[in-house]
């Protein structure tokens, strides 16, 4: 039995061609599509309607708050648990505490942002069916791929292939597990 078809990967030669093809495909009603490129192509996130995704920013803010408040609580509690009185200086010395709170704010914001990036992108995922496509290795060199997934409502094994060809793709290859 033939392997199930997961989608088509169409190859383009320049970032511009990929961007135009992506915009066309979106305009023609395809939604389960993705681009693959050796570097972030300017405008791709707009073409795929991703630019309103601000999750990473909010994750970093949450991390920062967690680090700042968490460390401040530790500082306050340790000073309650074992008060060190030095010349009548305040036990809760916020200006002095602030330095470490600030560092922890940065540390946790970065840790959260990195973890958030990996979770949103579902990485690490060492193998993906698209790697089986023979020419896909060039997606990290100088070729640009537009991928239409078979779960797309407009997907049709024959028509989509021709459609990608009509967008000016250099090659169209089926992606199989």
């Amino acid at each position: 039995m033939a392997k199930p078809l997961l989608g088509f990967a169409a190859e383009f030669g320049t970032p511009d061609a990929l961007l135009k093809a992506t915009k066309r495909a979106r305009a023609d009603g395809f939604c389960c599509i993705d681009g693959f490129s050796p570097f972030p192509v300017e405008g791709m996130s707009g073409a795929l309607a991703l630019e309103r995704d601000h999750r990473i920013g909010w994750i970093a803010v949450a991390g920062g708050l967690f680090g700042f408040v968490g460390m401040l609580v530790i500082q306050l509690l340790t000073n309650v648990d074992y008060p060190i009185e030095v010349g009548g200086r305040p036990l809760f010395a916020y200006p002095a505490f602030f330095v470490v709170d600030f560092e922890l704010m940065i540390l946790c914001a970065v840790l959260f942002a990195v973890a958030g990036m990996l979770i949103i992108n579902r990485l690490p995922k060492l193998h993906d069916p698209i790697f089986n496509t023979p020419r896909f290795g060039l997606a990290s060199e100088d070729k640009f791929f537009l991928y239409i997934d078979s779960s797309d409502p407009k997907f049709d094994p024959d028509k989509t292939r021709d459609y990608l060809g009509s967008l000016g793709a250099l090659s169209v290859e089926p992606v199989q597990p």
């Binding site: 992506t22 996130s45 999750r55 992108n121």
Partner: peptide
């Protein structure tokens, strides 16, 4: 980590 240059990944990255 299995990076494949997906535009969706790039955007978040």
């Amino acid at each position: 980590l299995g990076w494949r240059g997906s535009a969706r990944h790039w955007a978040v990255w």
